[in-house]
Design a protein around this nucleic acid. Structure first.
Length: 683
DNA sequence: ATAGGGTTAG
């Protein structure tokens, strides 16, 4: 028997509870000592030992002890025995109005997903006259957020105020989290700004709130301020909240800095961190590093597999994605709802229509996953891209659930590609009902008309947009160089090296025309001269960013740019040829996916991905080397200190200070020019 | 003593 008086390791303690009555040197245990033993059972979720301990505690007459009773409830709860916890609670709560006991039961119900019973009990508690404390509110707020009840959260918030708990750190953190989870970032931010003391959880919750709403620039700024202003050290959870922002900006440098931080702090073995890193690298167009991280996990989980499969799919390595999907199943993992969305989406992007349909048709039987609206959306996309517009429309009509905007949107987009006005019109008008304020849909319809030369209809749709006061998101592309992100709008001349950039573009235009490029001037929806149209196409934002990259990025490095809309068809053709005439690797991320341009072709959507059929490596060795080499340069920097300070616009949007301000300004994807954009990229 | 911030899709 381990001496109770010495500091105890939880495992030793848990193992020490044997059949023999727990005594220490001949005397009976105190309630405090029972508390230590109980806690170790909770930590290790050992039900059998816990039950034994419970009976000892009862015999010793400590069952009603204020210290032990809530922990007994917790013990049964964490061991998945919510009914046993409830029985114990019901037996003990008759004459017991202790807030600790009631809170422990409420939180136990919340954690077990019995939301209704959880809130019933809360009402009973109030009727009983038990005054909730900060712990009660924290637990309830988390539950209400998870349950998706904004109304309930608002009521709890008002109770929190009336009970004088607003100043309490954990309650404020839970409120921030709850508002964030409902997308009410402004309310979260208001609370956050009013806090006098903030801890890591406060910052993490706020960063998470911004990331989940797409205010990634705010996430970045907060992350920096947390360290520089409050001198707080980010932990695993903070890092996970921040990584989507690095992925969004396709900012490899920031992502690598976070990765370096992860390595320095020994968070590498954390699966959640790992999945977030895999996703980040994939969204930065570097699936190979993502794979290295993935392969380094000896024990993988389903989310990690799913992240990696998506990473390859996003980067046009569809064969690898499908191989990995098989390998995952060989290793005993059953795909869940999300995995199947990912794999179906990969099939549709790759043009693997038959494979995709086969997976879709057998998924319920094979994996027990009932097809949801996202799966149907992939199928519709798959059929529509493949030109089977009628079949796609039939699926929408017969699927027996409400069609989603993205589903109709992909059908409409395919109508543009396959020049089908009839289905295009039908789909567009359904979309207008569903999303009357989404300018992108009107733009695609006008593109459908433009594709077949119905110019009067093009004009009609534009009039509709003007009448409704709708503006399309302006196109912009950005490139990161040494930690600075340079943003270009279409026909942008604001950069100080603009002359050089346009000179490069001019030279390139000549070269690619010689290589066979024919500008798709029919897509320029403006009444201007043919030559003017050609010029407009040449100064699309993605080409400006590429030209700038050609000037600045060392020849042996790929040029990585990102764009807030989809790359337009004409630019796609042009960039293919640019990659050929310059012998450069050009990696372009748009809203949908990555385009890896090399030697005149792209891994994507003209279904040419098969030529990239590299195999998944079978050895699971982690090439730490390559990661360290790229990350090494960041190891000594205070994270983001210099990088973030040097973030700036190239000057085009001087009035937009999204990254400096942290008050909800939008990231570049939502920047609007004063007037309508002339960038004709679709959606 | 009871509690709070985290990964994959669209």
């Amino acid at each position: 028997m381990v001496s109770i008086c010495s500091p105890l390791s939880p495992n030793l303690v848990a193992n020490s509870i044997s059949v023999e009555a727990p005594r220490s040197r001949g005397r009976l245990l105190t309630s405090r000592e029972y508390g230590v033993l109980l806690q170790s059972c909770i930590d290790s979720k050992s039900l059998a030992r816990g039950k034994m301990l419970h009976s000892r505690i009862r015999k010793a007459g400590f069952e009603r002890n204020r210290d032990l009773l809530p922990r007994l409830v917790k013990l049964y709860s964490v061991c998945g025995r919510i009914d046993d916890a409830r029985k114990l609670f019901d037996r003990m709560s008759k004459r017991n109005s202790d807030v600790f006991l009631w809170t422990s039961m409420i939180c136990a119900l919340a954690k077990n997903g019995s939301m209704l019973r959880c809130f019933e009990l809360f009402v009973q508690m109030l009727e009983r006259g038990v005054r909730p404390d900060s712990y009660t509110f924290s637990g309830l707020l988390k539950a209400s957020a998870e349950f998706g009840f904004l109304e309930l959260t608002l009521q709890l918030h008002s109770m929190v105020v009336r009970c004088g708990c607003v100043g309490c750190l954990s309650v404020a953190n839970s409120l921030i989290h709850a508002y964030g989870s409902f997308g009410v970032v402004h309310e979260a931010r208001k609370l956050f700004d009013r806090m006098v003391v903030r801890d890591v959880a406060s910052w993490s919750a706020m960063i998470q709130a911004c990331s989940s709403m797409g205010s990634y620039a705010d996430s970045m700024a907060l992350f920096s301020r947390m360290q520089l202003g409050d001198s707080l050290k980010p932990n695993e959870i903070t890092v996970v909240a921040l990584l989507p922002a690095c992925g969004f900006f396709s900012s490899l440098r920031h992502g690598q800095a976070v990765h370096a931080y992860v390595i320095r702090n020994g968070y590498e073995s954390n699966l959640i961190v790992g999945s977030a890193l895999v996703t980040m690298y994939s969204r930065c167009g570097d699936p190979d590093v993502a794979y290295t991280i993935f392969a380094n996990f000896y024990q993988k989980n389903l989310v990690l597999w799913t992240s990696m499969i998506e990473g390859f799919a996003l980067n046009g390595k569809h064969d690898i994605a499908l191989n990995l999907f098989k390998k995952m199943q060989d290793q005993g993992f059953h795909p869940n709802y999300v995995t199947l969305v990912v794999i179906l989406s990969a099939c549709s992007h790759a043009g693997f229509v038959d494979e995709g349909l086969q997976i879709f048709e057998t998924m319920q039987e094979k994996f027990g996953v009932k097809a949801g609206v996202e799966h149907y959306a992939c199928v519709v996309d798959m059929l529509a891209r493949g030109g089977r517009l009628d079949d796609a429309e039939k699926v929408i009509e017969s699927m027996g659930m409400r069609s989603s905007g993205s589903m109709l949107g992909s059908l409409l987009g395919a109508c543009q590609v396959h020049r089908n006005v009839e289905i295009g019109e039908r789909t567009a008008y359904r979309l207008f009902e569903l999303e009357p304020r989404n300018a992108a849909n009107y733009v695609i319809l006008s593109n459908v008309y433009a594709a077949v030369g119905q110019w009067h209809n093009v004009g009609r749709v534009r009039q509709m947009m003007i009448a409704k006061g709708l503006l399309k998101d302006s196109g912009c592309s950005w490139i990161e160089l040494k930690g600075t992100i340079y943003v270009f709008g279409a026909h942008d001349r604001s950069h100080c090296e603009s002359d050089k950039i346009y000179k490069v573009l001019e030279e390139l235009s000549e070269e690619i025309v010689r290589a066979g490029y024919i500008p798709a001037t029919e897509h320029v929806l403006l009444d201007v001269e043919e030559n003017e149209k050609k010029k407009l196409l040449c100064s699309h934002s993605e080409r400006l960013a590429i030209a700038f990259g050609l000037l600045k990025v060392p020849p042996e490095m790929p040029i990585r740019i990102a764009k807030n809309l989809r790359v337009c068809g004409d630019c796609h053709e042009a960039i293919k040829l640019i990659s050929r005439v310059t012998s450069r690797k050009l990696i372009v991320r748009d809203t949908n996916r990555f385009h890896h341009f090399y030697r005149g072709s792209c891994c994507c959507g003209d279904y040419c991905c098969k030529q990239l059929g590299a195999c998944v490596r079978d050895d699971d060795k982690f090439e730490l080397f390559s990661v360290h080499r790229t990350v090494g340069c960041c190891l000594d920097c205070p994270l983001f200190k210099s990088a973030l300070n040097s973030w700036r616009w190239n000057g085009s949007f001087k009035d937009q200070t999204w990254f400096r301000s942290e008050n909800g300004e939008k990231p570049p994807c939502n920047i609007r020019f004063g007037s309508e954009s002339k960038d004709s990229a679709s959606t």
